[in-house]
Computed example of a mutant assay.
Amino acid sequence: MAQEDIPVYGIHAVEELIKRRKQDIEHVYIDKDKRNQSLFNLMKICRKERLSYNMVPEIKLNHLAETKRHQGVVAFCSIKPYTSAERLQEIISEKEAPLLLVAASMEDPGNLGAIIRSSVAFGVDALLLERKNTVPLNASVAKSSAGMIENIEISKPRNLEGLLKELKEKGFAIAGAHASKGDLLPNSDLKGPMVLICGGENRGIPPYLDKLCTTFLKIPMSSKAQSLNASAATAVMLYECVRQRME
């Protein structure tokens, strides 16, 4: 966890955090050696609510909380509140041809920040993130976005796979960005309701999202270049989307 994130620690404080800002919790760390009912109940809540958590040694908690008075639990929240499921549905229903972007398995804060910046520039209606395997919305991401993080709706759906299946049934194209397979970007119709999925630096598009894609898109490029990095590829994809929609 990045040092600029502020930890919330203590059993009561973390319980209140889950009650009031559950959707904004990035990760919970629980002492793996301490045995008490309160910590066990917190772990069960994390499982039930699909919150990302790890069981770690006390020395790790001391480092994360920067104190030994953490009572065996430390949690971190996003620097910006995530868009609620209800608000996300409003955004989708308000637009004739919504453009949603899934930044999957993004591990580098600089890349995610750059993607946020491009999303604002090219009119993405909402950015969707996975609950796991994605860098948290911390100060590094905000800095890399050049302040644009405040100008876009960012959601971390409880069930991203289920949401995309629902959108697919409603007629959304689910387009996966791929380096070597699919239709060339300029030859694709990107004007309708669409979810664009861009994979991370190391994992690419995870299998559970890959199988939902109705089409794949690839960027035409020189044979001298094997690929673009995640944020550059996303920017090119989004530019083509907005170019076609402006026509």
Rank of each mutant, 00 (worst) to 15 (best):
S93C: 14
A232W: 05
L164S: 01
E161I: 11
L42Y: 00
P193M: 06
S119H: 04
K80V: 14
F40M: 15
P81M: 08
V141G: 04
L167V: 10
A103R: 02
G10Y: 02
Y53E: 07
R117A: 01
N151D: 10
L101Y: 10
R131A: 04
V236I: 15
K60N: 15
K156L: 07
S145H: 06
I45T: 15
S38P: 14
I91L: 11
A230C: 10
A2H: 13
P220E: 00
S84T: 15
K68N: 11
K32V: 05
F76R: 07
V195N: 04
K44G: 08
L51K: 03
L163G: 00
T234K: 05
S180L: 11
I18Q: 02
A121E: 03
P81G: 06
I154F: 04
P193H: 05
I11P: 10
G171D: 04
S155R: 07
I152V: 12
L129D: 01
T215Y: 10
K218G: 06
V73F: 01
Y53Q: 04
I149Y: 03
K34F: 09
K211W: 02
M43S: 15
V242T: 09
N111V: 00
M55Y: 09
L160Y: 03
L17D: 03
S155A: 15
G176R: 05
T214W: 05
E4N: 14
C46K: 00
S188K: 12
K32S: 14
V8K: 11
L196R: 00
E169S: 10
P206A: 09
K224S: 12
E240C: 05
S52N: 15
Q71M: 11
E15S: 12
L51Q: 01
K34I: 07
